[in-house]
């Protein structure tokens, strides 16, 4: 885009980045920059193109067109040199089921030319870091989903990467495991590791990401910090109204002027407003008697649903 300033110093720099699979446009001319030390998120519905973008950044999938620089280098020319400085946790885990837990880290270190003693030391440290120290000699397959995910993260860290790419790091994890992963990622960020992640969890994006982009149908449709996005696309508060199924009133016109935006869903009505309590009072004045009312702050989820719509995209 003409109005996007060039940022060649960025750790990842993409302009017009495009990925085609035959005639299918998986990533359609996206522009973004990721700075050193930040946590950057890709959000978007299924099939939006997040994984395709991550695979291009990870220098395993060649870009179809556009400009991409990672760590100041061109993936098409210097893929191996870039990958030497990356840690990658792919969406579908690629742990080696034929190797044991510690062996997975240890053999992986070989690929990065890490000497045996260093590899052994890091393996022990990293397994402790992800709380798998006591499982070091176990088979991989019987590990729970969350443990496999943590193992995959530990393996990605074996080369002490500057840039960590995580494709849905916490999908399928229980709340404890998710919080543990968040904590570990936060600590890595404190140490100066740049983190790029995709997620379907808005709380995760709000917790972890300094900046994020929302992708929809292969394009970037919004970008900014979580706070900025909420300010730009949502009001300060949301008033949620639920009506009894058999007593759902005819709302036509009755909500006029009460909120910046009104969304009528099958099970509830959302009023986007800066003052939820005032709107709730006004509703009572107009004679509406919802079964329940709830005033809450706007979240990234509201932004996401507003931008990408509530339909299911497949």
């Amino acid at each position: 885009m003409a109005d996007t300033p060039t940022r060649p110093d960025a750790l990842i720099h993409a302009r017009g980045l495009t990925k085609l699979f035959g005639s299918l446009v998986a990533v359609d001319a996206v522009d973004f920059d990721v700075d050193r030390g930040e946590a950057f998120g890709f959000l978007g519905p299924n099939g939006a193109g997040k994984t395709s973008t991550m695979r291009m950044i990870g220098c395993v999938s060649p870009a179809s067109s556009g400009e991409l620089r990672v760590l100041g280098m061109d993936p098409a020319v210097e893929g191996p040199r870039i990958r030497a400085r990356l840690g990658v946790v792919p969406q579908a885990d690629t742990l080696d089921r034929e190797l044991r837990v510690a062996e997975n880290l240890y053999t992986y270190a070989r690929y990065f030319d890490i000497a045996g003693p260093v590899a052994r030391k890091r393996t022990a440290e990293l397994l402790d870091f992800v709380q798998l120290g006591d499982r070091w000699d176990d088979e991989v397959e019987p590990l729970s989903g969350g443990m496999k995910r943590r193992l995959a993260i530990a393996r990605a860290l074996i080369s002490e990467p500057e840039l960590l790419l995580l494709d849905e790091p916490t999908t399928g994890l229980d709340p404890q495991a998710r919080h543990m992963v968040w904590d570990r990622l936060y600590r890595l960020k404190q140490r100066g590791v740049t983190i790029v992640l995709t997620t379907h969890y808005m709380d995760e994006a709000e917790q972890l990401c300094d900046r994020l982009v929302v992708m929809d149908k292969a394009k970037i449709v919004a970008s900014g910090s979580p706070r900025e996005l909420i300010e730009r696309y949502a009001t300060r508060e949301v008033l949620e109204l639920r009506f009894a199924i058999d007593a759902a009133p005819d709302l036509d016109g009755k909500l006029q002027g009460l909120a910046d935006r009104v969304e009528v869903l099958p099970d509830r009505v959302l009023l986007y407003t800066d003052d939820g309590d005032a709107a709730a009072a006004a509703i009572h004045q107009r004679g509406l008697r919802p079964e329940s009312t709830l005033v809450r702050r706007s979240t990234l989820e509201d932004v996401f649903l507003h931008i990408t719509g509530r339909r299911l995209i497949e």
């Binding site: 690629t94 080696d96 690929y111």
Partner: peptide, 14 residues
């Protein structure tokens, strides 16, 4: 099945 190569290709291996 096992995606062994995918893991290898995420390292400097080609």
């Amino acid at each position: 099945w096992m995606r062994t190569y995918d893991a290898m290709l995420a390292s400097p291996l080609t």
